[in-house]
């Protein structure tokens, strides 16, 4: 098929699809979500978990398994990317150094990003934010210096340890419920006083684990992809 003809046909099909989707969405009552489950959760989340951020309660308690899966997906993706790209970052690198502004700003930003990320992680059960958002910021904190100093070797060792233990902690907290004869991921340690930093039982712990895991994995992923574009950094893998 010629490129133009394909584009034209695709456009026609897309218009058709669009019209059908619009028809479907029209039939949905916007703003009147059925909330079969959502209503119940909104009503009892505080008693169940002690988290004031109900989204966090859903994420870590009601749908904690999804979150574990989500962490696992990042881990799978990182492992698979590692497998595909080979052990990057070991070789003596010689990338082009970044400009002064980036280097200065990176040094300046690093502690702030670190603090911000940590804050967002540990307050995830109280305010908007949480392990993923905070973890992403933490990853950025470590990635910005790398941008500033492309030649600096990445130490995957520490990241691996953090990654491994953070992930394991999540599963172990979940399995702790089984030991007590309950279900997987049962909330532990009591709900506490709503609004306090040390409340919501094991939720902050889970968020911490997620934050560290996501942070280290994203940082590792970005470092690998960045290194992959640079043949000198591919650790002997051609």
């Amino acid at each position: 098929m010629k490129g133009n003809a394909r584009a034209f046909a695709s456009a026609l099909f897309l218009i058709g699809l669009g019209l059908m989707l619009v028809t479907l969405f029209e039939a949905l009552p916007f703003g009147g979500a059925p909330m079969q489950v959502g209503q119940a959760i909104a009503g009892r989340a505080l008693e169940d978990t002690g988290a004031t951020n109900i989204v966090s309660a859903v994420l870590l308690a009601y749908r904690g398994l999804d979150t574990l899966g989500e962490v696992a997906i990042l881990f799978v993706a990182a492992t698979a990317a590692g497998l595909v790209l080979g052990g990057a970052g070991r070789a003596e690198a010689q990338g082009t150094p970044a400009g002064f502004i980036l280097r200065a700003a990176a040094a300046l930003l690093f502690p702030f990003l670190l603090v911000l990320g940590a804050y967002i992680v540990i307050h995830g059960h109280l305010t908007p934010g949480g392990g993923f958002q905070g973890g992403a910021i933490l990853a950025a904190a470590f990635f910005v210096p790398l941008l500033a100093h492309p030649a600096s070797p990445v130490n995957h060792g520490v990241a691996t340890v953090v990654e491994a233990f953070a992930g394991a902690v999540f599963v172990v907290i979940g399995l702790a419920g089984l030991v007590g004869g309950g279900a997987f991921l049962v909330p532990l340690l009591g709900a506490g006083t709503p609004g306090d930093l040390f409340s919501a039982g094991s939720l902050p712990l889970l968020y911490l684990a997620i934050g560290l895991k996501v942070g280290s994995e994203l940082a590792g992923l970005m470092a690998r992809i960045a290194a992959a574009g640079d043949p000198a950094r591919q650790g002997g893998k051609a």
Binding site: D48, G64, L65, F184, V186, P187
Partner: peptide, 10 residues
């Protein structure tokens, strides 16, 4: 999961 019975939890 988490002891949250059927429709609410997983």
């Amino acid at each position: 999961m988490g002891g949250f019975a059927a429709p609410i939890g997983i």
